[in-house]
C-alpha cells in the first residue's frame, strides 16, 4: 500500500486486551503519534486531576451536610479550621506549613476542648489535601457508612466534634487529635489525584495522636471512592483498625491490616499469562 492510501489512523488489533487492564494500551497511531481522540481523552483526564488539586474545597455546604448527620456518637457541631499554609501556592511548596494549625485555629480547638472538658475515643478530621473533589464527594457518604457501622458495635465509642481543615496534610490530625483529647484520630483526606482517579479519599488512623509522629505510626486505607474501594468496605476496614488499635494500644507498622491478606495470598498464585502459556 502506498503512503497516500494509508488510513490516517492505524488501529491496534490488540486493543481488545484492555478488558484485562486499565493501562492505555492499543491506542493506535496517526503516523507514529497519538490519534486525536486519544490525545484529547488524556488531556481531559489531566484537566480533571488538575482541577481536583486547585479547586478549593467548598466548606460551607460540607459543614451543613456534616451538621445534618446527627448521630448519638457525635459530640457538638462540626468546626472549620485552617493550616498555616495560607493558599494553594504555599501549600504545594511548604508541606511543613500544611501539617500545623494556624494560630487562630489552634486557639479555637484548644478553647473548644476546654469548654467540653472531657476526653474522646476518636476524632474524625476531614482535610482537603490534594483533591477537593475527593472530600466534597466522598467524605460525608463515608462518614455516614461509618456511623451506621458504629451503631452496630457493642462498644460505645464517643466521637469528638468533626473538624474540617483547609490546606492541610495528614499530620495536621496529630495536633488536632491531641488538642481534642482524643485517644485516636482518623484523618479523611483528598489523595494526590491520578489520571483515572481524581477523587480518591484516603483514611489515616493514628493511635495516641501528638505532633512528631510519622507515616510508620499510621494505618492507611486508600482509594475510597465509588469506582474504587466502596464506602461500606472502607468503613468496615476502618472499624477493624479502630478495634485493633484500641486492643493493642498502637497503630502503624505494629498493627497489621489482616483484611488485606486475601489479596496477598492471591498474588502468590501461578504466573500464567497469554504471552507464555
Amino acid at each position: 500500500m502506498s503512503d497516500q492510501h494509508k488510513p490516517p489512523v492505524i488501529d491496534n488489533p490488540w486493543r481488545v486486551l484492555r478488558q484485562y487492564t486499565d493501562a492505555r494500551i492499543g491506542l493506535g497511531r496517526a503516523g507514529i503519534s497519538l490519534p486525536t481522540s486519544e490525545m484529547l481523552e488524556f488531556q481531559l483526564a489531566h484537566a480533571r486531576a488538575r482541577d481536583a488539586v486547585h479547586f478549593p474545597l467548598d466548606v460551607e455546604p460540607l459543614l451543613a451536610e456534616l451538621t445534618a448527620l446527627e448521630d448519638k456518637h457525635l459530640t457538638g457541631l462540626p468546626i472549620r479550621l485552617h493550616s498555616q499554609a495560607e493558599d494553594r501556592f504555599t501549600y504545594l511548596q511548604r508541606p511543613d506549613q500544611g501539617r500545623k494549625l494556624s494560630e487562630a485555629s489552634r486557639n479555637e480547638v484548644v478553647a473548644l476542648a476546654d469548654d467540653i472538658g472531657e476526653a474522646f475515643d476518636l476524632a474524625l478530621v476531614v482535610v482537603d489535601g490534594l483533591s477537593s473533589s475527593a472530600v466534597q464527594n466522598n467524605a460525608v457518604p463515608f462518614i455516614r457508612a461509618f456511623l451506621t457501622d458504629l451503631d452496630r458495635e457493642p462498644a460505645d465509642l464517643k466521637l469528638a466534634p468533626i473538624t474540617v481543615v483547609e490546606q492541610g496534610r495528614v499530620a495536621i490530625g496529630d495536633e488536632i487529635g491531641e488538642a481534642l483529647n482524643a485517644r485516636a484520630v482518623a484523618v479523611l483526606i483528598g489523595e494526590r489525584p491520578g489520571l483515572s482517579s481524581p477523587d480518591s479519599l484516603g483514611v489515616y488512623l493514628t493511635w495516641n495522636p501528638r505532633p512528631g509522629l510519622n507515616d510508620a505510626d499510621r494505618n492507611c486505607i486508600s482509594n475510597v471512592r465509588p469506582a474504587g474501594l466502596r464506602f461500606e468496605s472502607a468503613s468496615q476496614r476502618l472499624l477493624y483498625l479502630v478495634r485493633e488499635a484500641f486492643r493493642l494500644k498502637l497503630s502503624g507498622v505494629g498493627l497489621k491490616d489482616r483484611t488485606e491478606e486475601a489479596a496477598v495470598v492471591d498474588a502468590s498464585s501461578d504466573n500464567k499469562n497469554f504471552l507464555t502459556h
Binding site: 491496534n12 490488540w14 486486551l17 484492555r18 484485562y20 487492564t21 486499565d22 493501562a23 494500551i25 492499543g26 504466573n271 500464567k272 499469562n273 497469554f274 504471552l275 507464555t276
Partner: peptide
C-alpha cells in the same frame, strides 16, 4: 499477570 503481559506486548 495478564495485565502486565498486555502492557509488555503493547
Amino acid at each position: 499477570m495478564t495485565g502486565i503481559a498486555a502492557s509488555i506486548l503493547d
